[in-house]
């Protein structure tokens, strides 16, 4: 199809009000420590997976909290659940469970698994 100068692309703005927050609510309920994140990036720095590919738990955390689930869905399956992140988190976030519960949430609220 011919592309014109003005295509209907998804807006760059985070449309907070229209985004779906059911996933983050589910995670916060099952793993309340998720709320304590201050985005220091310790988890992503030490991450075994982040060593090889663009996977950042800090980024995932922010995206989930803003309701930008589509981006997270693609990324979250890359986690190896090794648990290094939970050993360095200065806020005591149970990071491993955040990923585990997030995967569950995607299975529960989306009809297909991550």
């Amino acid at each position: 199809m011919e592309k014109f100068g003005f295509t209907l692309t998804k807006a760059r703005v985070i449309d907070y009000d229209r985004n779906d927050h059911s996933i983050v609510d589910f995670i916060m309920e099952r793993e309340p420590s998720f709320k304590a994140c201050i985005e220091c990036g310790c988890c992503s720095a030490t991450c075994t997976t982040g060593n090889f590919t663009g996977f950042s738990l800090r980024e995932i955390n922010v995206l989930l909290k803003r309701g930008e689930n589509d981006q997270v869905r693609k990324k979250i399956k890359k986690c190896m659940l090794c648990g290094k992140c939970s050993l360095v988190c200065p806020r005591g976030v149970n990071t491993r469970n955040v990923v585990f519960v997030a995967k569950q949430a995607f299975q529960k609220f989306d009809n297909y698994a991550v």
């Binding site: 399956k77 299975q107 297909y112 698994a113």
Partner: peptide
């Protein structure tokens, strides 16, 4: 078994 799209999830490993 639920069809899981988990194939190649770690294909980024060098």
């Amino acid at each position: 078994v639920k069809k899981q799209n988990i194939r190649n999830s770690f294909d980024f490993l060098p």
